[in-house]
Nucleic acid binder design. Structure first.
Lengths: 124, 124
DNA sequence: CTGTATCCAAATAGATACTG
DNA sequence: CAGTATCTATTTGGATACAG
C-alpha cells in the first residue's frame, strides 16, 4: 500500500530515522566505499589488487577512501615489514556489522536488473 | 569471524554481487536520494515542503534528484490542475520494495551513533 | 609496492533571476 | 508554487611524477 496524507506518523520518529540514515550515508559516502567493503567481505586484498579490480578508480581516490574506511574502523590495514612493502586491507569485526547492508543492496540490485530487462524501459 | 586469505570464495559470485551493488548505488547515487525516499515513506510531500525539510539542499538539486527518482519509478509525481500549482511526491509501490534498505540503513546508523558516543573517538 | 604532491580538467553545487 | 536558466564558486577526479 502506498501511504496517503492521512498515514502521517509522529514527526520525531521520522526525524530520528532520517538522521540515522544520514549518519550511515555519511560514512559510506564516496563512489566506491560500498564496493570496496563488499570485496573485502569476500577476502582481504592488497592495495594494488583493489586498484586493478575496481574499474575506473584512481590511486589517489582509492587511498583516500581506504583511509576514511580505516578511520571509521570498518577495515583494518596491515603492513608487512619487508621490502617491497605489502599492505593488506581486510574487513574488520565492526565492518562485518554492515553485513545486512551488503546483503540487501545487491539483493535489490539483482531484482531491479531483472525488472529492467523485462520491461526494456530504462537503461542500466 | 574476520575472513582470511584462505576463505576465498568463487570469483564469479563476488563479481555478480559487486555488479548488483553498483546497480543499486547508481540508482541511489546523489547525496539526498535515500533521505528523500525515507521521508516519502512516511508521507507524501510537496516540493516546497521537501525543500524546507531537507537541510542544505538547493532547489536545483532537489528537482533533479526528484526527477531521477521518478524516472526510475521509485516515486510518483502528482500535479494539481489548479492555480497556484501544487505538486505532490509520493513513494510508489516499487519504491516500497526498497523497504529493507530504508530499514537497515537507519538501524546501522543508530547503533553507530551509540558506539561513537560511547567511545568518544570520532566525530559524527 | 604503496602511497603522496601537484597540476589541471571536469563535474557538481549554490545563488539569483526568471517563466508558466 | 514549482520549477528552469544562467553564472560562478567549490569540489572532485585523473594523470603524472616522485618519495619511502
Amino acid at each position: 500500500m502506498v501511504p496517503t496524507i492521512t498515514d502521517l506518523q509522529p514527526f520525531t520518529e521520522c526525524q530520528k530515522k532520517i538522521r540515522a540514515i544520514d549518519d550511515t550515508m555519511d560514512i559510506l559516502s564516496g563512489k566506491w566505499k560500498v564496493s570496496i567493503l563488499a570485496r573485502l567481505c569476500y577476502n582481504p586484498m592488497r592495495y594494488s589488487a583493489l586498484l586493478k579490480d575496481i574499474n575506473g578508480i584512481s590511486g589517489k581516490v582509492l587511498s583516500r577512501e581506504l583511509k576514511e574506511l580505516e578511520v571509521n574502523e570498518l577495515i583494518a590495514r596491515e603492513v608487512s615489514p619487508f621490502r617491497p612493502p605489502a599492505v593488506t586491507y581486510r574487513i574488520s569485526e565492526y565492518g562485518l556489522t554492515l553485513g545486512a547492508l551488503t546483503e540487501c543492496l545487491p539483493a535489490w540490485g539483482l531484482q531491479h536488473r531483472e525488472r529492467i530487462s523485462r520491461a526494456g524501459k530504462a537503461k542500466l
